[in-house]
Amino acid sequence: MTTLPSRMKAGLAGADGRRRLDVASRCLAGIGGGYALAAVAAMFLALALPLALAMPRAEAVYTATMLSFAIHAGAIVWAFSVRARRVWPGLLVPALLLGGGTWLLHGLQQGAPS
């Protein structure tokens, strides 16, 4: 753990370096990737909730935005709780799926004669 005084890891520069890289990667994934996921999820829900639950637009936006903070916090916690190789795919795959869904819904909405 990084809680050990740093000099106790002298001679383990390689392992130490890898560990730092791992922490940096998780931070970036959790904070940046997590925010992106939360933002895309909010956009998707804002468009999907009116269709799925016949929710008024403003309420859908509000619900989606309110939930997005929990999603972001959850993503950060998650980024620090799984194996390193699962972190990025675990965040990016749902973000891409939701992004695709958002793109479809938005396209439908724009294309639909209102």
Binding site: A38, A39, V40, A42, M43, L45, A46, L47, R57, A60, V61, A64, T65, S68, F69, T102, H106
Partner: peptide
């Protein structure tokens, strides 16, 4: 988190 508002509106 302005993304949902800005997209929907």
């Amino acid at each position: 988190m302005p993304w949902a508002v800005d997209l929907a509106y």
